[in-house]
Amino acid sequence: MNKKRNRLEIIRDILEVIRNKSGKIKPTHILYKSNLSHAMMEEYLQELKDKEFIREQKTQTSRTYFITEKGVRYLSQYALVSDFTSSFGLE
């Protein structure tokens, strides 16, 4: 059985899903790939927007999310962030 993901892992997973879809994705794909409830996904998407890891583009009928440079940087330095937060109990 997989262990419960922590917050940093969920953020990484969402960003990876977006990056693997050429950097842009619809929320339904994120919901499908990230294995989160709709409410949880919306909460994480809001946090990622606040941190400027993703950018949202809205049209009348749909939403699309793009990964930003900061989001890509988070993915490349995820190991450092994860090790630091687990070392000092900050997860």
Binding site: K51, R73, Q77, L80, V81, L90
Partner: peptide, 10 residues
């Protein structure tokens, strides 16, 4: 690390 993750805890 804070500059990367922007987490107030850190």
């Amino acid at each position: 690390v804070y500059k990367i993750i922007k987490d107030k805890k850190i």
